[in-house]
């Protein structure tokens, strides 16, 4: 069996498989969004979205994630040009911004919790922490994945396998950015308005 043809087929399957996985992740987030929307008003006499959410924070998080997505895109372009150094720099920027995003989010969570608006306070807050927290866990998973991929890249160089890993990672990262846009809109913007 032609080794190269076989390899291409495997890469092809993995890419399609990953797209399919992303679609199932959509179904997962859709369920969380539905739950959030239904429970949005169930504040049990506690603080609601209008009292709690601060748009500047949310906007900062959005910009941080958008820029990190841009950096990730730059990394893939550099990868296509086989420029390992630029790939590493771009990925470093992606990672740093990803960590920044998580730090801001964690700070928001801790502030809420200390202010009596923890996840045990009401159904609304449970839904908020879970929806936004699940997204954050996905970001964390992405960062771990990125670390592993970079380590591999440093060890074996820019092989086809590593290139595929990076491409799939970038898909994942952009997907998470997309989900964040929905969170920003549905949770923060709509939560503060009306």
């Amino acid at each position: 069996m032609n080794e190269a043809v076989e390899q291409k087929a495997v890469l092809h399957r993995t890419t399609i498989g990953f797209w399919l996985y992303l679609m199932t992740d959509c179904a997962l987030f859709a369920s969380l969004f539905a739950t959030y929307v239904v429970l949005h008003g169930s504040t049990a006499g506690g603080p609601g979205s209008r009292q709690l959410f601060e748009l500047p924070t949310a906007l900062t998080e959005t910009l941080v994630l958008l820029i990190s997505s841009y950096a990730c895109g730059m990394a893939v372009l550099a990868m296509r040009r086989k420029n390992v150094r630029q790939v590493l720099i771009a990925l470093a920027v992606t990672a740093v911004l990803g960590v920044t995003f998580l730090a801001i989010e964690l700070r928001e969570f801790i502030t809420f919790s200390l202010d009596g608006a923890g996840w045990q306070r009401s159904a609304f807050l449970s839904a908020f922490f879970t929806l936004v927290g699940t997204h954050g866990l996905h970001i964390l998973t992405g960062l771990i994945w990125l670390t592993v991929t970079v380590v591999t890249l440093l060890r074996v160089g820019l092989t086809d396998k590593v290139a595929r890993q990076l491409t799939l990672f970038s898909l994942f990262w952009h997907f998470l950015d997309l989900v964040w846009i929905f969170i920003f809109t549905v949770v923060y913007l709509m939560g503060v308005a009306a």
Partner: peptide, 8 residues
């Protein structure tokens, strides 16, 4: 408190 009887 997603599905509890109380607290929303």
């Amino acid at each position: 408190h997603f599905f509890t009887a109380d607290m929303g």
